[in-house]
């Protein structure tokens, strides 16, 4: 793979991880179970831990430690050699493992398209729909100022 191809692949994997991390384990699991899966084993047993979440002074300045968040992580190895990584906020071992499996599949020629179209794409559509709904609810609370004209017109 060229550098650009590698960067593209990585960007794709990141985009998929972002969708998966914001989906429920049950939703990911339901979509995966409807697919043929490659032979795989768990390379890193799911484990819980913490990450220190950082903010920036003034929103855009020097970083500071805001507080921690729980994270679950796992890694999955396919029989074809690809290693997938799963990270998610929360303490859901199964979700971390499923994300790792999807990430491993996304790195193969045989399964990349299927995992994208059968798992990631529908979850992305649901995620965007939810966000659009929230944005529309928020938009209804936007203040429209108007000026009252007083006196003779």
């Amino acid at each position: 793979m060229t550098k650009t191809e590698q960067d593209n692949k990585r960007a794709q994997r990141k985009a998929a991880m972002a969708v998966l991390a914001q989906s429920e384990a049950a939703e990911i699991s339901a979509r995966l179970s409807a697919m043929a899966l490659p032979a795989h084993r768990t390379l890193r047993e799911p484990e819980n831990g913490l990450v220190m979440v950082r903010g920036r002074v003034g929103g855009d300045g020097a970083p500071f430690n805001l507080g921690e968040a729980t994270v679950s992580r796992s890694a999955v190895l396919l029989s074809t050699g690809q290693v997938g990584f799963g990270y998610t906020l929360g303490r859901d071992h199964e979700k971390a493992r499923l994300i790792a499996l999807c990430d491993a599949m996304a790195q193969t020629d045989a399964f990349a398209d299927a995992v994208e179209s059968e798992v990631i794409a529908p979850l992305r559509i649901a995620m965007i729909a939810k966000r659009n709904r929230e944005d529309a609810e928020t938009a209804a609370t936007r203040v429209d100022f108007y000026t009252m004209v007083r006196g003779e017109g």
């Binding site: 831990g49 913490l50 990450v51 220190m52 950082r54 920036r56 970083p63 430690n65 992580r73």
Partner: peptide
Amino acid sequence: RFGATAAV
């Protein structure tokens, strides 16, 4: 602790 996040 696994580490620190990128600043949000």
